[in-house]
Structures are given as structure tokens and as C-alpha cells.
Design a protein around this nucleic acid. Structure first.
Lengths: 234, 234
DNA sequence: ACAAATATAGGCAAATCTGTGGCAGTTATT
DNA sequence: AATAACTGCCACAGATTTGCCTATATTTGT
């Protein structure tokens, strides 16, 4: 399906050039004169990627970028005539995925846009990959083994299947029902705490890992990666 | 988050500099003299991100990058002295996530490394996220957690379900009947103040937020976002 | 302003949930 | 066949949640 891209730049020429190249690649493109206009539009109709100039009327590109990042994971590329190292680092640190310096080649921009979409696709596909990685752990679904860092962990069949499911749903809250259905193949409403039992045993085996199974009270469980040092990086 | 990074560059100085900066950020770093050595190591122990020079003994960085991309979704940054537009585009098109031209600032490299990790984290969390936003609050239906700005709020199951319903009907007046039906699953006319109780507890947890639960006298409740300018009104 | 109806706040106890250790039936391994 | 491993269940203790009760405050209608 065709991806949607919004561009904000106060220079109509640049908008036109960028827009043309991207449309040529089959993307749906909308152009805006200001970051504020783009932001309003995004709230109404989200898009997949945003290209922001820094210097614009109203809020500048950096402000828009930071504002978007508060709540959205949309891809953001900043383009700017500002070429100091500090500018680039600021732009990237504020939340953009890439930073291009004007004048830039439209072809390179297109390549970088594609690279970002490719990255998102790769990250999506990871769920169906043979090797699943979460935090310092990885499991190989084919060979059915499991590693904490470099150390192999022995898992029983049910434990492995359960952990695989949790890996595929990392960060999500998973209900006992869900687990019974996907790990045990039980469709009906079973009154059992078999899930708790396997998790109990799994937890013991994960004590040395930063990957933890949290319980979500009254609901189920959630796989999370413990942050050992800093509290709020983002 | 101690992610693992492999670096391949035939210049020991560059390896050292890059490695130092990255270790300084808390990453686990391993250095290799050639892309082939790095590749072998990766097969044995995967890492999270790879930094490749183009010109090296054996297969060059581009070849390694392409080879890795055949089977793995690991992050790849290419660094190179080659600075033509074509070189950059080739590098990115072949599968790398970023392309930096030597000499580059180690600080910028670190910023870009962080940006890539940030992207992967965002994608992982959003892959199937179902996020509702109202004012300064955010709830993720899939992970079942709730945030005021950047601060996590613990909710009980009923509170969570109720708040979700209110989020879906923000600004609307919601009757007790409605809540009993959708949150409790009660169809009949129940004479209960259970709704008031949960809301009472919810309100306590939302004191720091601009999102408030108003009561609609004789009817039910309404979720509103307080205007921060006229806080003294109520 | 006053009475009736409705809403809020605090406290309480029943019901529910979770983690633990132990146990036994079944399955796999030697 | 004997032994070990795996898995589900049980019971218990501790913690959390939640509905209700009562007292008090607020709103509405006359």
C-alpha cells in the first residue's frame, strides 16, 4: 500500500522538487507552507513520514518535531540549510530519524526515505523471524533454544512455547485466556492457573536476565526489559 | 540499555575512537579488523548494531552489509571516506540504515546510533499499539498502561476499562447506565453507585493531569481537558 | 432560604488475585 | 523397568480491589 508523506517547507520550489521525486516513487504526498499547518493536518489524518524544514513561519521544524515525538512514532526527516555539527546533532537528538543539509540531492533524500520505510518493515517482520531478540535475550524458534546474553538456558517445551509467544508480544499485556488459546490451544473458558505455573518456572530461569515477566493485576502478564540505570531516557 | 555494537574498520585509531565514545554511552562494543571477522562473530553471537567501514581487507563493507541484509534485520551504519552522492546512495540502497562520511564527528555518530535505537524501540512498541490520547494523558490499550505526560500511572482493572471507555467518549456526557453496561457488562437496571466509586478513585489518580472527570448532575460523567490558563475557574 | 435529591469522601470488609511450596499423574529418558 | 523430568493442581498467606455504608457537602426546585 502506498505510504503517505507530508512535507513542510516555506520554499515552494523545494516543496515542489521534493514532492515530485517522492510522487514519482509512488508515495502520496501533501505539502504545507508551515510546520503548524502540517501538524494540524497530521492530527486529523496521520501520515507515515514527515519532512520538515527548520526555518519556517510559526513554530520551527525542531519544535514541531519535538511536539510530534511526544505522542507519535511517525518517521521524521529534518532538512535544513543549517550545517553545523551542533545543528545536526540537535535535530537528531530532538527526535528526528534523519537530518539532511540543504542543498541536498533529491535522489539521496528518496534513498533515505526508502531506508527508513525499510527499517520499519524490518522491525515489523521481526515478529515472524526465526530469531527473536528482546533485551539481552534471544531465542531461536527453529532450533528451539534460548540464550541470556551468551549463556544458554534450558527450557521445557511449554516454557519455550510460552516464552516465544511473550517475545512476539513484548511490551503488551497478555491475558491468561490468550495464553491458553495460543500456547495450550484451549479455546473454551478454562478455569486453570496452568499459565501462572509455567510463568512461575520461567521467571526463575530469567533471574539473570534484564527481561522480566510482570504481572498485570487482574488481567495477565507482560514481558518487559528492565532498565537498570537511568529512569527516564525518553 | 546496554545494547551490543560491533565495529569493523581497518584503521585501529578509528576503531578506538568510535569504540570509546560508544562505550562511554554504556554500549557493549566489540571491534574487528575486517568485515569478514565481524560477520563470523555475528553469526555466533548477534548484536544490535553494526558499524562498517567500506574499504577493508577481504569483502568490503558494502558486501558485508548486503550479505547481512539477506537474513538479518540488525541495524547497520556505513562509514566511509567515499563522499560522492553515488557512494552514499549506493550504501543506503544496499541496506544500511545510515551512511556517514569520514571524517565525521564521533558525537554525531553517537547521536545517530541513539536515533536508530530509538526508532527500533518506537516501532516495537507501536507495532500493534492502540494508543488513545486525551490532553496530557495517554493510555495504551495493548500494553494496558496509562501515562500522565511522562509519568506512569497504575490503574486497577476496572479503573482501566472505565478510563478507556471515557477516553473513547471524551467530551461526551456518559450515563451511569452506559458505564454499567460497557464496563461492568450489566444490562439490567442496577441500583448501584459502583460507577461513582471507581470514578472517585480515578479522580484521585488524575489530580496531576489536565484531564478531569466532571459530573453531569443527575446523569453521569464527562471527561474534559482543563484549560491550563483558567485553572482558577473551577 | 429551605427541603429534597444528588454527589463526594472516608472507612470497612468481603471477594478476588497472585506467588509459593508441595504433590501426584503422566511422559520422556536411560 | 527404573529414574528423571515435566506439568497441572491444591492450599495457604499476603496483597489488592471493589462495592457498600455512613456522614457530609453540593445542587435543584419551590
Amino acid at each position: 500500500m502506498s505510504k503517505k508523506i507530508y512535507i513542510a517547507d516555506d520554499d515552494a520550489n523545494i516543496r515542489f522538487i521534493i514532492g515530485s521525486f517522492l510522487k514519482n516513487e509512488g508515495y502520496q504526498v501533501e505539502e504545507f507552507e508551515s510546520g503548524d499547518a502540517l501538524y494540524e493536518r497530521f492530527l486529523a489524518v496521520p501520515c507515515d513520514l514527515i519532512i520538515l524544514d527548520i526555518m519556517m513561519e510559526g513554530r520551527d521544524g525542531l519544535a514541531i518535531c519535538a511536539k510530534l515525538r511526544e505522542s507519535y512514532s511517525v518517521l521524521i526527516i529534518i532538512v535544513s540549510a543549517l550545517d553545523s555539527e551542533l545543528d545536526r546533532i540537535t535535530g537528531i537528538t530532538l527526535g528526528s530519524d534523519d537530518y539532511l543539509v540543504k542543498p541536498f540531492s533529491p535522489v539521496e533524500l528518496v534513498a533515505r526515505v526508502k531506508a527508513l520505510f525499510r527499517r520499519v518493515d524490518l522491525d515489523r517482520k521481526v515478529v515472524s523471524a526465526d530469531i527473536l531478540v528482546v533485551g539481552d535475550m534471544r531465542i531461536n524458534v527453529k532450533s528451539r533454544d534460548c540464550w541470556i546474553d551468551q549463556k544458554k538456558v534450558d527450557l521445557t517445551p511449554t516454557e519455550f512455547t510460552l516464552l516465544t509467544y511473550m517475545f512476539q508480544h513484548a511490551d503488551q499485556a497478555v491475558s491468561r485466556q490468550q495464553l491458553l488459546k495460543h500456547v495450550w490451544g484451549v479455546e473454551w473458558d478454562a478455569d486453570t492457573r496452568a499459565t501462572d505455573d509455567i510463568l512461575k518456572r520461567l521467571r526463575k530461569k530469567l533471574v539473570d536476565s534484564r527481561v522480566k515477566v510482570e504481572s498485570v493485576w487482574g488481567f495477565g502478564f507482560r514481558l518487559v526489559v528492565e532498565d537498570e540505570h537511568e529512569k527516564s531516557e525518553k
